[in-house]
Simulated scan of single mutants.
Amino acid sequence: MASAAGGGPAGEGEWLKVAELRAMVQAQDPHAKEVDNLTLRRFLRARDHNVDKASAMFLKFLQWRREAAPGGFVPEEQVRRELSQDKICMGGVDRTGRPILVGLPARHYSASRDMPEFKSFVVYFFDKICARIPRGQEKFLCIVDLKGWGYSNCDIRAYIAAIEIMQNYYPERLGKALLIHVPYMFMKAWKMIYPFIDNNTRDKFVFVDDKSLQETLRREIDENQLPEFLGGKMPLIPLKDYVQHPQAV
């Protein structure tokens, strides 16, 4: 079971629980038929294989999804201001084939943030990165570069909203988040954010000190896939310039 909880191959017992979960959610919401077994398995794993808890979580997700993305995806025009700030970019892939998402929080300003648009933006970029995940892989890697981050960028409400969306509606999608160039003052903000992160997610946030930055990055990512601004050869693509047909997740 440890392997399954970590996102590894499922055993027969786990698939039986997925079937049980499917029967339970389809009886309550016919839209559950449109969701594949891998998605159901992620919700099951997020609730430690408790079918009742996974069912409640998944049914809440279906209702949320209809409200957050009525047409199946968030249209670009709905998040145009957030996109214009280039604070989320697409990178290459790590050594395990997980696509890389790069966050640049120093380009986010709390004073100009509109919360409904920000939440839609979070859905927009999670949909984009999840659509990049190849068959046989279920997770993505995130690099959060806090270089230049200061008080004007500090937005606890937005950070918590993003984490809650990820945990509740994109379970078992984050493989690892590398926080780099972390200023001392950010740790005060982190203390306020930390209680809102569930136990399964906390271990995925890794603070990387400057001395071991290159060693850590190159252990995770080949030079050809590492972003140029971090010493690699892969150009970053701002999310607004990333061309991909929107997909429902």
Rank of each mutant, 00 (worst) to 15 (best):
9 P>D: 12
95 R>Y: 05
203 D>W: 02
170 Y>H: 02
187 M>K: 14
35 V>E: 00
215 E>N: 10
218 R>V: 10
173 R>P: 07
221 I>Y: 03
80 R>Q: 12
174 L>Y: 06
129 I>S: 08
77 E>T: 08
88 I>N: 04
23 A>E: 08
224 N>Q: 14
130 C>Y: 01
137 Q>N: 11
65 R>E: 08
25 V>E: 05
108 H>W: 13
17 K>M: 14
184 Y>I: 13
94 D>Y: 05
201 T>Q: 12
166 M>I: 04
209 D>F: 12
59 L>E: 03
84 S>A: 15
184 Y>F: 15
125 F>P: 03
10 A>G: 12
170 Y>R: 01
178 L>M: 15
91 G>H: 02
47 R>P: 09
12 E>C: 02
25 V>G: 06
97 G>T: 07
149 W>M: 03
195 P>Y: 08
113 R>Q: 11
48 D>S: 13
60 K>G: 07
170 Y>L: 00
151 Y>D: 06
113 R>P: 02
11 G>Q: 09
92 G>K: 02
112 S>Y: 14
107 R>N: 14
91 G>I: 01
53 K>V: 08
239 L>K: 06
142 C>P: 01
99 P>V: 00
81 R>Y: 12
224 N>P: 00
101 L>W: 04
224 N>G: 05
63 Q>M: 03
129 I>T: 06
152 S>Q: 15
101 L>G: 04
199 N>D: 12
208 V>G: 13
165 I>F: 11
111 A>R: 13
23 A>H: 03
103 G>N: 10
242 Y>I: 01
94 D>R: 09
96 T>Y: 08
26 Q>P: 01
198 D>W: 02
31 H>F: 02
121 F>G: 04
127 D>N: 13
79 V>C: 03
168 N>Y: 00
73 F>P: 00
54 A>Q: 03
202 R>H: 04
173 R>A: 10
19 A>N: 10
39 T>I: 06
168 N>G: 09
49 H>D: 09
226 L>C: 10
14 E>L: 13
222 D>W: 07
158 A>Q: 09
140 F>V: 10
222 D>L: 10
60 K>D: 15
232 G>I: 00
140 F>I: 12
127 D>I: 06
217 L>E: 11
152 S>W: 08
120 S>I: 02
97 G>N: 07
123 V>Q: 15
161 A>N: 14
99 P>E: 00
44 L>W: 09
25 V>K: 09
16 L>K: 15
33 K>T: 07
141 L>T: 14
210 D>L: 07
14 E>W: 03
27 A>L: 05
56 A>G: 12
67 E>K: 13
87 K>E: 05
114 D>P: 01
38 L>E: 12
149 W>P: 05
208 V>Y: 13
65 R>L: 05
7 G>M: 06
92 G>C: 01
148 G>H: 04
26 Q>G: 02
79 V>L: 06
104 L>C: 06
219 R>T: 14
90 M>K: 00
146 L>W: 09
108 H>R: 13
90 M>T: 01
52 D>T: 15
218 R>Y: 09
153 N>I: 09
230 L>D: 09
126 F>Q: 11
181 H>P: 04
181 H>V: 04
33 K>G: 03
153 N>H: 13
242 Y>S: 05
32 A>Q: 07
159 Y>H: 11
107 R>Q: 12
187 M>G: 07
79 V>P: 02
200 N>V: 01
